[in-house]
């Protein structure tokens, strides 16, 4: 039944509307990524000056996820949704500050951060380009991706107490794969008319990019760190 509904939605979505959703999503995504980077820069400088405790990262993540769960669904269809998207991305960017400051204090820290940043950009652009040009329908991935995400969360929960470096590495690597899958899935939904709200689409893609960056940073930090 859901299949019938899915395809009828697709057929009813004109190409002009699809292109508008894609255009608006990428404009908003660019703006939020820039805003997030500025907030991360401010927080990094504050952390280096000893003005931010490490727990700020966790508190910002909790606040941002709270906005995604409870506020975004109520505001996504109004102008307030734009403000909520900037609040979410700003909080997540700001929360990166203590972590970035810690990596930058390593001898090859600037190289690790720059590589993670550039690598995330290449992965996102490559996967988005692939989904946009092939216009393949990746809607079958949804169930696998959320199941994988749940398994990763359970593993991450266990690793808080086990503190196994090998498990941390495996979690980071799997998160990169799952988030890459989400980029394909979300872009495909946008291209094929499965999602018409560019605010929701922007948050989805932003979270995938954010998680790839953080996981890549951890992978490179563990595998390439000298200290």
């Amino acid at each position: 039944m859901s299949e019938v509904q899915y395809y009828s939605e697709r057929a009813a979505m004109p190409a002009v509307s699809v292109n508008k959703v894609i255009k608006n999503t990428y404009i908003l995504l660019s703006a939020t990524l820039l805003f997030s980077a500025v907030m991360a820069g401010i927080a990094t400088v504050m952390s280096q000056a000893g003005m931010l405790p490490p727990i700020v990262g966790l508190l910002c993540s909790i606040a941002a996820i709270g906005l995604v769960w409870f506020v975004l669904p109520k505001t996504a269809n109004s102008a307030k949704g734009l403000g909520v998207v900037f609040a979410i991305t700003g909080l997540l960017g700001f929360g990166l500050g203590p972590m970035l400051a810690a990596y930058l204090s390593l001898s090859n820290g600037p190289q690790i951060v720059a590589t993670a940043f550039g690598g995330t950009g290449v992965i996102f652009l490559g996967l988005s380009g692939y989904a946009l040009t092939t216009r393949k329908d990746f809607s079958f991935l949804g169930g696998f991706l959320v199941a994988g995400l749940l398994m990763v969360l359970v593993a991450a929960l266990a690793n808080i107490f086990l503190a196994m470096p090998a498990l941390s590495l495996a979690i980071s690597a799997i998160v990169i794969m799952i988030m890459s899958g989400f980029i394909l899935y979300d872009t495909s939904r946008m291209v094929n008319g499965g999602e018409t709200n560019y605010v929701v689409m922007t948050v989805g893609l932003y979270l995938s990019i954010f998680n790839i960056f953080v996981s890549l940073l951890q992978l490179l930090g563990i595998m390439g760190g000298e200290d």
Binding site: M177, S180, G224
Partner: peptide, 13 residues
């Protein structure tokens, strides 16, 4: 594409 991502990450490491 996921295999390409995995290969790219190995290259970055």
């Amino acid at each position: 594409p996921l295999a390409a991502v995995a290969g790219f990450v190995v290259l970055l490491i």
